[in-house]
Design a protein around this nucleic acid. Sequence first.
RNA 1: GCGCCUGUAGCUCAGUUGGAUAGAGCGGCAGACUUCGAAUCUGUAGGUCGGGGGUUCGAAUCCCUCCAGGCGCGCCA
Length: 690
Amino acid sequence: MYLEIQQAVRERFVQAVRQLFGIELAEPVLGYPPSSRLGELSIASCFELARALRQSPRQIAEQLAPRLVPLDGIERVSVAGAGYLNFHLDRALLAQAVFRHRASETGEGRSRAAEGISAGAESAEAAARAAKILVEHTSINPNKAAHIGHLRNAVLGDTFARLLRYRGRPVEVQNYIDNTGVQVADVVVGFIHLEKKSLAEVRRLIDDPSLRFDYYCWDLYARVFQWYDGHPESLAWRAAALKDIEEGRGEPAAVAEAVSTAIVRLHLATMRRLNIDYDLLVRESEILRLNFWSRAFELLKSRGALRYEDAGKNRGCWVMSLAGNGRSPGEETAADSGPGEEEAEEDIKIIVRSNGTVTYVGKDIAYHLWKFGLLGEDFGYEPFHTCPDGHVIWRTAVEDRRDGRAPAFGRASAAYVVIDTRQAYLQGVVAAALRALGYSAQADNLHHFAYQVVNLSLRAAADLGMEVTEEDRVRDYVEVSGRKGSGVKADDLIDLLMRRARDEVQARAMTEDRAEQEASAGQIAVAALRYFLLKYTRRSIITFDFQEALAFEGETGPYLQYSVVRARNIFRKFRDAHPEFSEARPLEVPLEQLRTFLSGESGGDFWELVLGSAQLEMIVEQAIAGEEPATVAKYAFRLAQAFNNFYHRHRILAEPDAARQRFLLFVVDIVSRTLARSLELLGIEVPERM
RNA sequence: GCGCCUGUAGCUCAGUUGGAUAGAGCGGCAGACUUCGAAUCUGUAGGUCGGGGGUUCGAAUCCCUCCAGGCGCGCCA
């Protein structure tokens, strides 16, 4: 409703300007007046028109105002300040529309709210919206436990996927598993050479319930690097293991397979604690076994995207030229300093090494060609894990085991890749490859969803018993390092949050039921963590601090949950006193009464909440366009704040006027549903009691 | 050297893509629980939006320049 009104306002304005002045304007950006007393939407375009029309902005606005009404959802238009056109919404109508809309939303966890896509959507726009969007996130090397940085990635990706689904876009979530890379090889070296363990012994470790295998590997990985430091010659072990793993041969390959699969299962379990889920695990081993690279290589060569170097320092390599990637043109033309040797300055990337093996980016190019259905090859698939709700996580396989109705993977129209910002250069290479192949539309639709890293505060590092160097002290943070085994393990952090939440829940003695206490503590811990990771914008470096991450007050997930619980408590109590009141029968408040209460003495307080609730869809669209989940987190917090304020100022259960009480309940209902829905989009559940 | 990102209150960060009086949390100070449970709320102090130019009716936001920091640029992944 709100989005529709905005669109109607924009269109009407363009139309009015055309009719009155014969000028064709682009649709104006809508602003927001400083106070809702002045209206809810504003257009500042009259300032721009002033020059062309040789009239004051105020005059122009006054001429246009009468032509902008009547308009559905708009009560009136006013001119303010030096020439702002302000639109006053029909409060009662909007309240009713929001209420009906929220009440009709199902709230099913996995349901793909298909609003916006009607069965036979015909317009090109609708078709574009119905095209599948792929979100790749998590993609942790399967060689050790997940840490806090991985959580930021997964929470961002999961939330973004939820936002897309809420707005009706079909989404496929992929998690890329680099099970044949050096990181896995290093752990394999640890098992085989340092610990002298056989495959059977490694398997026993995996199956041993008394130890956490991913934690074990975390330590082993650090030990391997310590060993390399003292024994550089043993790097040959790594090279040999890597080769065996890539070719799928011998004991190292078998150990790698066992280790990486076990760790992936543990990663998935960790992520499930945070309500994070996937559709498909794409494994690098299949990219190798199914020769995806050969196919991509053929494509790249046949379209001239790669060049063979038969001289120079890159002799024997296949390289890709990254034209236009930096280098000012002026500099290039001024290069009269002699021919020949300056050629080496050309910005190129080696894709195939002189020994014939492909680099990491090469495999990534093949993967991304497949994502867009451009490779002409497909994986086999097999079910990997069935979630409690019945959802199946698939993984790639050499042999296809999709019997019956098979999910169709890949062939996306757009892809979002959640990887930290340091990978920007390589993401650029992949996009450049798509362009070089003539797929510029796909290159445009390949979005690097870049986010900043998570560091540790000095205090956190001290809490973890890490050594802090003078350099760290100057910078005021400590970098995490898998090689050193430093960092905050994801499950440790979640456990710590659980303990904190359990203490709080028990201290408040809301219920004697242990199961409910456990459930609440879990939901609160997850809320604190997810909100903590989502409230910062992507480009903001998070300096992790236990005190901040463990906070349950102020701008936190639990604060948001608490707001919803409070709202629901009102209904709980009200139902106790009014058994005839039922959830099934929606609250009906006549339009006339809505009008009275929303414009009355406290009308502003109520209207703020209704208006805020009406903006969820718009905010989600903004978050999608800006690729910024924090937008939704901030929005939910503002709405919760407004609600808590309202909660203190107005007594609902004690309200003597029955009609007014009904209206207040109506407002509470709108807000609590909107907040609960916002939290669901952030992957946060609301406990029964708090 | 080249490229990308960042600089806003004591601290941590928002700022609706160029609009009206720059906001929030934390921390400080002063208050509000016999109430729909205070994981809450109210008030208050705190700003040359890194500096300087420019564009514009209008700039935290766009351009130039300088300063300070971070990251990337490998026949590693």
